[in-house]
Write a protein that binds this DNA or RNA. Sequence first.
DNA 1: CCTAAAACCTACAGCGACTGGAGCTTCAAG
DNA 2: CTTGAAGCTCCAGTCGCTGTAGGTTTTAGG
Lengths: 148, 148
Amino acid sequence: MGELSIPIGKLARSVGCKVQTIRYYEQIGLLPPPVRTAGAQRRYGEAQRQKLSFIRHARELGFPLPAVRELLALSDEGDSDCAKADGIARRQLEAVNRRIAMLSSLRSELERMLHHRHGHRIRDCRVIATLADHALCSQDHHAERAES
Amino acid sequence: MGELSIPIGKLARSVGCKVQTIRYYEQIGLLPPPVRTAGAQRRYGEAQRQKLSFIRHARELGFPLPAVRELLALSDEGDSDCAKADGIARRQLEAVNRRIAMLSSLRSELERMLHHRHGHRIRDCRVIATLADHALCSQDHHAERAES
DNA sequence: CCTAAAACCTACAGCGACTGGAGCTTCAAG
DNA sequence: CTTGAAGCTCCAGTCGCTGTAGGTTTTAGG
Ligand SMILES: [Zn+2]
Ligand SMILES: [Zn+2]
Ligand SMILES: [Zn+2]
Ligand SMILES: [Zn+2]
């Protein structure tokens, strides 16, 4: 009753994610299968809540799931060198920096086309004209992958 | 042979996308079906090349496909008011700004955890510790799914 | 103890915007 | 005429969830 008694909905609320997300993490082996009641419902304890919280926090910081998996594994090895963990975080920082650079370039291009004075009809619209002709752009904003 | 003679691979190279992407755009009704050779191979003309180029440029600027669809439709109506097109671009700019704000917040959090001096073992690692406890973060970086 | 509602279960489909592969056919250069 | 590149269709996979259908279990009130 005391320890392993958290049902999945309460756990989801406590870490701010959906119930399905937790089941998904279990399915892909990120969270270990919890104990079940006689009626096959999942019951969690504090240790698993912390693990899930770790995962969600890493996800909120943009780490992809494979990186989260590595970080989780590392977090269990207190004696090991943390260079690996730091490396993962550094690569994530670099990825974030690349995305910011890309988006800044997109932003300036969007601002350019919007702030350029132009007529009110489509045929005089700077937005449409710019989309039709990249030469009207000031920079190379070419996206290789600006996602996430 | 003069006009409608561009095969799909050449078209793809000329706009900088994959062959499959063009077929995909046709499949979802973004590009009209081109003429075919006797052997059922696609052949494109200059007008379609320009349309595809418009689509790719809009995608590079981060517009989602439904927005691209609208912009394409608008671009064919030279007499209409361009307020709609400008509105779509403005919303895209706002989305980009939200994404940049989110990523900047992530960046500063990642920098904080990386630049904080800490020991070389996992148990003293600031990266792992921060992931395990959001209280070590300085801001609310909580991602609400701000999309491209 | 009984009932009703809330929460849970599994299994699977769908999102966005492509991308890759298998297994075949057609085209164009030499 | 041969050959290899490029084309074709159909389907599955990517990422990280999210939603739905159709059923079962838990829990609180009466
Ligand atoms: Zn305009
Ligand atoms: Zn451009
Ligand atoms: Zn460290
Ligand atoms: Zn945090």
